[in-house]
Design a protein around this nucleic acid. Structure first.
Length: 412
DNA sequence: TGTCCACTGGAAGGGAGGGCTT
DNA sequence: AAGCCCTCCCTTCCAGTGGACA
C-alpha cells in the first residue's frame, strides 16, 4: 500500500487551518460592519431579559448581508446573558426553505420546546390546530420568553400564503405563563406586500433593512476569517482584495466572498501550490459561476433552451444587440430544421423576459422610432461556460436540434 | 404634429401533469 | 381508484408605446 490518496488534502500540507471558518454558515465571535443592525436587534430583544415581550421584527436584505449571522449572534448572546441572570429565554430558528409547510413549521417549533417525549408532535397525522395547541402547551410549560426566528420566511408565504403567521402573531393573546416574539428574515424587499394588512402591521412593527457591504468592508470580513481559518502567509497580496471586489459587484454579498476565498484556497491545495494567488481566485470565480449557472441552464424548459440556443447561434455568427423579431425567426428556423412545432411569438417575448431575469441574457427595450420598438438582446453567459453542451447533455431532445443546425451551417 | 412600426406586456383561459385527499 | 386542486407552460386577443420620419 502506498500513501493514502486523501492524505495530502488532510494533513499538515493543507493551506487551511480551519476550513469551517470560511463557510458562510459559521457564526464568528464578532461581525464587522453590522454594529448598527446588531444594536437595533439588541435594543428590541433586551426586553426579553426584563421578562417582557420584544416586538416582532422583519429583517430585509439581499443574500449574504449577514441577516442570519447577526440574528444567531444576538440570540446566542441573549441566551447566555439570560442564563447568567436566571431568565428563561429560548430561541428557535426555522429555515422555511427546507421546512416549508404550516404543519412542519409549527411542529418544529413545538418539538424544539418540548419538555419531554410525551409532548412531541409526530411527523404527520395531527390536524394543524392540534399542533398549535401542543406548541402553546410546550411554551407555557417552559415559561419565559420564546423567540421564533423564521429564516427565508418569504419562501413559506409565497408557497402557502400568510395564514401560518396569523396564529403565530396572535399567540401572545392566549399565553399566560410565557411570551413570544417572531423575527422574520427575508431576501424579498417587497415581502410585506404579500401579507394581509393586519399581519403585516403585527409582524413588521419593527423593520430592519440590511445594506450591502462595500468592497473594503468585505475585505475586513475576509481578513478576520482568514486569520483563524487560513495558515499564515499563504495568501498572496491582492487575493483578499480581488475576492472582495468581485463580491462587491454582486450586490455586496459577503457569502460570495467567503465562497470565492474558500474555493480559491481549495484549488491551490488540490494543485499542490504553496501560495494562493489571484489566479486561483479567477479559477474559483469560474468554478462558482459554472456551478451556479449549469443547473439554471439545464433545467430550462425545452423551448426556452431553443430560444437561448438561437440567441447563442446569432452571437456565434458575430451578431449582437439582436431584436426579438430576429431571435424569433432564427428560433423558427431552428424548430423547422429539427421538425419541432415552434411557439407563437408572444410566448417568445415571455421566454426572453424569463431568460433575462435568470441572468442568462440581457434584454433592453429600445425604440427605433419609425422602425418600431423591440428588445436589444445579448447573452451574458461567461466565456468559460459552454451553454450548448450543457443543454445537449441535460436534454435528449436538444441533440437533433444541435445536429441539424451543424448540418445547416456546413451547407451555408 | 401626427403617424405608424414592431413590438411590449397585461388579461384570461386551456390543458397536461403532479400531488393530495377521500 | 377517483376526484380535486395547483402549478407550469402555453395560446389568443389586444391595448399601449417611444421615437424617427413625413
Amino acid at each position: 500500500m502506498g500513501e493514502n490518496i486523501f492524505n495530502h488534502l488532510l494533513g499538515d500540507d493543507s493551506l487551511f487551518k480551519n476550513r469551517d471558518v470560511l463557510h458562510h454558515g459559521f457564526t464568528p465571535d464578532n461581525l464587522p460592519h453590522r454594529e448598527n443592525e446588531i444594536k437595533t436587534l439588541v435594543h428590541n430583544l433586551v426586553e426579553a431579559l426584563h421578562g417582557q415581550m420584544p416586538s416582532n421584527m422583519i429583517l430585509y436584505g439581499q443574500p449574504g448581508l449577514g441577516k442570519t449571522a447577526v440574528t444567531r449572534y444576538v440570540c446566542k448572546q441573549l441566551l447566555d446573558r439570560g442564563k447568567e441572570i436566571g431568565r428563561t429565554i429560548s430561541a428557535v430558528e426555522v429555515n422555511c426553505c427546507s421546512i416549508d409547510t404550516k404543519y412542519r413549521v409549527l411542529a418544529k417549533l413545538a418539538n424544539d420546546l418540548a419538555p419531554d417525549n410525551e409532548s412531541l408532535v409526530p411527523f404527520t397525522g395531527w390536524p394543524t390546530d392540534k399542533v398549535l395547541q401542543q406548541l402553546q402547551q410546550n411554551m407555557e410549560s417552559q415559561g419565559g420568553v420564546h423567540i421564533f426566528v423564521l429564516d427565508e420566511i418569504d419562501h413559506l408565504v409565497k408557497r402557502h400564503g400568510d395564514d401560518i403567521l396569523y396564529p403565530l402573531t396572535s399567540l401572545n393573546y392566549e399565553l399566560r405563563n410565557s411570551k413570544c416574539c417572531v423575527i422574520g428574515i427575508t431576501n424579498d424587499l417587497q415581502f410585506t406586500e404579500m401579507l394581509d394588512a393586519r399581519i403585516a402591521s403585527r409582524l413588521g412593527s419593527e423593520d430592519l433593512a440590511f445594506s450591502p457591504y462595500n468592497a473594503s468592508q468585505i475585505g475586513d470580513i475576509l481578513s478576520q476569517r482568514a486569520l483563524v481559518g487560513v495558515r499564515e502567509g499563504v495568501l498572496e497580496n491582492g487575493v483578499i482584495k480581488l475576492c472582495s471586489a468581485l463580491a462587491a459587484q454582486e450586490h455586496g454579498d459577503a457569502r460570495r466572498a467567503l465562497d470565492l476565498l474558500r474555493v480559491a484556497i481549495h484549488k491551490a491545495d488540490v494543485m499542490g501550490d504553496k501560495l494562493v494567488s489571484t489566479e486561483h481566485v479567477r479559477l474559483a470565480q469560474n468554478q462558482l459561476q459554472f456551478d451556479q449557472m449549469t443547473p439554471v441552464i439545464s433545467s430550462l424548459p425545452f423551448h426556452q433552451k431553443l430560444v437561448l440556443y438561437s440567441i447563442l447561434l446569432n452571437e456565434s455568427n458575430g451578431l449582437t444587440n439582436i431584436s426579438t423579431g430576429e431571435v424569433f425567426s432564427v428560433y423558427q428556423m431552428t424548430c423547422n430544421n429539427a421538425s419541432v412545432t415552434p411557439l407563437v411569438s408572444r410566448s417568445i417575448g415571455n421566454v426572453i423576459k424569463n431568460l433575462d431575469s435568470l441572468g442568462l441574457v440581457t434584454a433592453k427595450t429600445t425604440s427605433l422610432g419609425r422602425y418600431g420598438r423591440s428588445n436589444r438582446i445579448n447573452s451574458c453567459i461567461p466565456q468559460n461556460i459552454n451553454a450548448i453542451t450543457i443543454m445537449t447533455e441535460a436534454d435528449e431532445a436538444m441533440k437533433p436540434v444541435v445536429n441539424s443546425t451543424y448540418r445547416l451551417q456546413a451547407r451555408l
